[in-house]
Design a protein around this nucleic acid. Structure first.
Lengths: 151, 151
DNA sequence: TATTGTTATACTCTATAACTATA
DNA sequence: TATAGTTATAGAGTATAACAATA
């Protein structure tokens, strides 16, 4: 059709292969990482709620339900289970007696840290098969992937 | 404790931050990509079975159960549902009349291709917020991530 | 006797609908 | 009257146990 110098957008076509490769690798790695669980008794959503609380500090059941894309009754049950396991604490909402405030306990914090450690160790073990040049490329791309994940 | 030049292993400590960053970004991106579904009526495992069949060509129900980390009775049900939807074909196993051979249909192939397209488009849209330097880093790391995902 | 796949049944997770308490 | 959360109930997905057919 036309030459590259007149079509800067062709660089996007060049990126298409990279995008396809990234999608495939990220989804596969993500699935395998998810299997590295530290507590088999917690469901994926329960783990996710703990992660959200770790990021946000605390939240009401309604906020959690919206963030986890789950209906309020499901969150009621999840929060009750997490409380029974000593992983979250429930307090009355200051200023609205209908609401509650959910926050993570020290136990949950320690469990999340152990979970991150375990997954990091698994990934690092997998990456032992890489040479120094490949490591360098990963180190360079890591911050970009993080930016992408939070866009 | 000691100096870097006497501890080449410290390069692994230097990689630890990258590993942590990668783990976090890959899991988050993976979760978000999983939500970009082309057919809401298929469960995650059903989609995964189709993906496995696309990679392997065909497999017996027992092989599929092992690959998907699911018990045989669950795979019986999944295969039956996929067959009812016209996404897989069942044939007798040549040489062992206890087994069956499951393979994907053209319909499934087309659906998977559309699914890849949709996720690629979503990811490419997200990555529009990156500059050329960041793109270059992603392009360089993409093959490494693919290698990692298949190790 | 061991293995492949199926049937019968129960458990877990989530959803919708109806209800209670508070705003 | 609207909103936050709960209770009651149903549906989807998976597991275990018991069984049939074949190796």
């Amino acid at each position: 059709m036309s030459y590259a110098k007149y079509m800067p957008d062709l660089s996007h076509a060049g990126n298409a292969a990279a995008v396809n490769s990234l999608r495939s690798a990220v989804m596969r790695l993500g699935r395998r990482l998810k299997h590295q669980r530290v507590d088999e008794s917690l469901s994926p959503t329960e783990m996710s709620v703990l992660g959200t609380l770790a990021r946000c500090g605390s939240a009401t059941p309604g906020e959690l339900a919206r963030k986890e894309h789950v209906q309020p009754p499901s969150m009621t049950r999840i929060v009750a289970l997490l409380e029974a396991k000593g992983l979250v604490r429930l307090e009355p909402h200051p200023g609205d007696r209908r609401q509650k405030v959910v926050s993570q306990t020290e136990t949950a914090e320690a469990m999340l840290e152990e979970s991150r450690r375990k997954r990091n160790a698994w990934l690092a073990g997998l990456a032992e098969g890489l040479d120094e040049d490949e490591w360098a490329k990963l180190r360079a791309a890591a911050p970009v992937l993080e930016k992408l994940a939070h866009l």
